[in-house]
Every structure is written in structure tokens, then in C-alpha cells.
Amino acid sequence: MKIAIIGAGNVGGTLAARWAELGHEVTLGVRSLPDAKADALARACEGSVEVATVQDAAAGSAVILLSVPWGAAQAAVESLGDLGSKVLIDCTNPWVWGEGLKLGFETSGAEQIASWAKGGRVTKALNQTGFENMADPVFAGRKAVMFVAGDDADARATTTALVSELGFEAIEVGELTSARLLEPHAVLWIELVTKHGQERGFAWGLLRR
């Protein structure tokens, strides 16, 4: 599958490398070329990841992953133009260092992104743990859970498949309004790390009888 990743930070870079390892055609989308950070990531992936402008990366891909800080999300989404029913996976959180959660419960960051994404089928996933756990989401033989939300069933299924390939137990939780729960859930992970002494190497799981 052709995947465009918008944002070459820790999350975007980790997912680019993992999906490329799994055989997907991955392109990092950047605002202008050349981009030293994205070029370095592509070199580290030994040619399995390409770099292009945001617009070219999105145009050439079936799935787009949005992985930028919340303050840059609107501009990044609007720069994509008409997405023509492409799947847009939102892994951002509407959370700002020192300010906390900017949206929650009555709406969500994902719903805001859906309102900016012309033609796109937005799903929410890959926002609920740190990038280290996206590189290896299996803990002592048990898969970390990653919840997936979205209004379009086919887009949810595509996202669920991509998340599952990474090694997560991917669980669909219905419509995009469920992101109102998933984003605060992610902030709990962040605050456990930043305020309560947890190491970054933990993720959520489900225990069943």
C-alpha cells in the first residue's frame, strides 16, 4: 500500500520505518525540499522510504498519516487540498505542553481534523502510546491494544489492518466521536510519563477471562 506520512518526528519516523519494513511504499511529506530531517530518516531506511512535498506525497498515496504537533495540524491538513476519499489517519492529540488538553468530551481533535480535511475519510488511531511502543508493541508475548475510530467502515478496516501489521491488538470502537475518549486516554499516558514517574516503555492492554 502507498502511505504518505505528514510529519517526520518521532512518531512519523518510527511508523515510516516500520511500514516500509513490512513492504509498504512510504513517502514522507515535507513543506519544502530538501528537508534535512526527512532526508536523514529516508537514508536510515536504506532507500525504502522516499521524501516529497506534502502535496505530492498525499497525491501519490492511498493512505495519509497525520503526525504533526497540534498547533500545526490545521495548516498541514489544509495544505493537502482535496483528498478525494483517501483515508487520513489522525494520530495527533489536541494537547499542548504546559497547557494540557485543548479539546475534549464535547468534540475532539479528530473531529476538527475531519472538518478541515476536504474529501478525506478520517480515522483516529496511533495516538495512545509513545513512539517506542509503536516500534515494538509486544510485551512478553502480549500485544498492546490500539483503539481505532472512524465514521467510514472501510476506512476503519484499512486503518485496523495497518495498525495490526505493526503488532498491536487493534480494536475498532465505532464512529469518530469515540475520539473524544481516545484523546484523553492518550493524555493519561502522557501525564503518567511526564508527571508521575512512569517510564515510556509501557502501553495499554486488555485482560480477559
Rank of each mutant, 00 (worst) to 15 (best):
K195D: 14
R121T: 05
D82L: 05
G23T: 03
A16F: 00
R180H: 06
G81V: 11
T159S: 13
A117L: 08
D151I: 15
D39H: 05
R43M: 03
G205N: 04
A16M: 00
S61F: 02
L65A: 03
W19N: 01
A17P: 00
V87T: 13
E99I: 06
L88W: 06
A114M: 10
V68C: 07
A42D: 07
M134D: 06
G109E: 05
V26P: 01
P34Y: 11
D90F: 07
N10Q: 13
T194F: 11
I113R: 07
K102P: 04
N127E: 13
E99G: 02
A144G: 14
E46T: 01
T107W: 01
E165W: 11
C45H: 00
G29S: 09
L207K: 08
F139Y: 12
I190G: 10
L192C: 15
E99K: 10
T14Q: 00
D152K: 12
T92W: 05
F139N: 14
G9T: 03
G197V: 09
Q112R: 13
D82G: 08
E78Q: 14
E111F: 07
A57G: 01
I6E: 02
R209P: 15
P69E: 04
Q198W: 14
P94L: 04
L188E: 03
K102A: 15
L206S: 07
R208H: 06
S164E: 15
